[in-house]
Design a binder for these strands. Structure first.
Lengths: 180, 180
DNA sequence: CTGAACTATGTCTGAACTGACATAGTTGGG
DNA sequence: CCCAACTATGTCAGTTCAGACATAGTTCAG
């Protein structure tokens, strides 16, 4: 069974061939489009995708203990990815540490909690500015059958998410200041 | 080291004593306030909290192979929870299967992808209606030092999140229909 | 009074993942 | 020419977790 990370790898490879290292930098935190993974796990999953013949690689002489391996999707890989897209997502559990902290925030000093949310707000605002810059680089919304549509769709979601999150932080800060 | 689930358990116990079973139902999917866990993991973490003397239990005769155990926070547990609240959250990796699917959506049939998002939209709209009903039950925003403030804050965040998500689904459906 | 649904606690296996460790070629500044 | 930073692949140990399995008292409808 292909893991979700396996499909994330294939989704990146569908745009062009990559080495494991390039996949890892693309999916590294904190940015990593929308799905993050360390290089160690990526190499493990690449082995599984290889075994299932969903990807293959061209070996090249280059850096690394085993040389350089440029991975690409096989036709079966592309088909598996396309089929997976329209399957309903297995819902990942909703686990948000900041939300949990807000749930327990009544126990703590309001000013310290407010400070926590001011820091998070600054992060969200920085990300909003960054995403808006990226969105401005698109002249129009790409057509739905272009790879660029995927980039635009995730960017739209990310921007909307950051705005929602920033609004919540501002509301929290306001509430925590109201009692003083 | 107390896991985040350990703090989630303590955050619930801070409102009153509970059995492991009650904790598990409160944190079960799909609702589960904001942090989900299965009962098996909750029992494991309760053992760790017991060992650290952050919680204790009163044994009662009742159902279950070992009878009924009503857990409550110790003063140390309450203190540990309060200290944890104001520490910056360890960022969990952002992993969203639906966003990943949207990233690869250009490969698939637009009408099938649109159907996927219509289903998600219906779920979000149902949750919005449910959360709005819950929000209406609050007369005012609770003061920041009341336990109810935690409930209101998570509800506010959840409602905002669902609206953001629904907006994204609507945008996706619109885009996917535009090309036909 | 019987059996199903519910309450209740716990163990175990395997998958996914993080972070540390190990190895080694390439490139460019000083 | 040397060394640091970068490119590059991989293993391993420990953690978290979901899902299956195991056990057993309580309650209530038929």
């Amino acid at each position: 069974m292909t893991s979700t990370l396996g499909f994330a790898i294939m989704a990146v490879l569908a745009r062009g061939a990559r080495t494991g290292y390039e996949l890892a930098t693309a999916m590294s935190r904190p940015l990593g489009y929308f799905w993050t993974a360390g290089h160690s796990q990526i190499h493990v999953d690449l082995q599984k995708l290889l075994a299932a013949d969903l990807v293959r690689f061209e070996a090249e002489h280059g850096p690394g203990p085993q040389g350089r391996k440029v991975y690409h999707l096989t036709p079966q890989g592309r088909e598996a990815l396309r089929d997976w897209v329209t399957e309903p997502p297995r819902s990942r559990p909703e686990r948000d540490e900041l939300v949990l902290k807000s749930y327990a925030s009544w126990l703590a000093d309001p000013e310290q909690v407010a400070e926590l949310f001011r820091e998070r707000l600054a992060e969200h605002e920085a990300r909003i500015a960054e995403y808006e810059r990226q969105q401005a680089d698109f002249e129009d919304v790409p057509a739905a059958d272009r790879p660029a549509f995927g980039n635009y769709a995730t960017l739209w979601c990310g921007l909307s998410y950051e705005r929602h999150r920033a609004a919540w932080c501002r509301w929290m800060i306001e509430q925590l200041g109201a009692g003083s």
